[in-house]
Amino acid sequence: MSLSPSQTSELHERLEAEYLDALENQTIFIFREAYRRFENLAMLWSIGKDSTAMLWVARKAFFGRVPFPLVHIDTSLKHPVMLTFRDKIAREWKLELLVGQNKEALAGGMGPSKGRFECCTALKTNALQQMIDAHGFKGIFLGIRRDEEGSRAKERVFSPRDRDFQWNFKDQPPELWDQFNTAYGDDTHVRIHPILHWTEMDIWRYIRRERIPVCPLYFSDGTRRYRSLGCVPCNSPFPSTAGTVDEILAELERTSTPERAGRAQDHEKAYMMQKLRSLGYM
């Protein structure tokens, strides 16, 4: 017996739906578990595709609302298109948006010319820490994925940071059967990673299925597009003509270049991302 083309595509669709549902369900479970266990939560929203897709799942978990604030760390080096997109979505989805910025470092002239490691640490990690301290957040949702980069692949779903913000990756607590570690001391906060198990392809497939709005910078202007969104000086677009989600998916099927190739901070020196992240980078 063989399948007709329409039967084949129906089967494809059903299998893809089951597969994306499984990813989504796991993410919803994590969201609800965090919401149940933590008093004071926030979600880091980078305006990129991952955290926007994650935000979409949060709306599913909480029946259309988002019961915690969204934090955007604005390094002042973000593309204006991102900020327009951010404000539009925040309005339409009725989000509580908190914008964090390390004003002191910016006033002191911090920028990538002072060194990328220093710049990322000051304008992102430290700005996030200031925000967490100011609001007393106990749990922060982050849209990182295992397939992005080696040190992220070693993460737990609920991952504690000590009072100095540090990640003790050499001695992480066990995590099994979705019984997460949620009870830590007062001087720590927990990073919660609801989409740790997704891949870049999964995110795009999900965006396609759910018709999630994403920042226009991901789509080609005819010659170039961004694959990952960061700060203007340290993130470069690459040549591409993919102007729709379908075209992006087709392009990703063909490429072997890693997603963060255009992100300069990853390549500055060996183990750069591990070092940034052990200090509290996302």
Partner: peptide, 9 residues
Amino acid sequence: AMPKPPAEP
């Protein structure tokens, strides 16, 4: 029967 491998769980 598939032209391309499907995204199975």
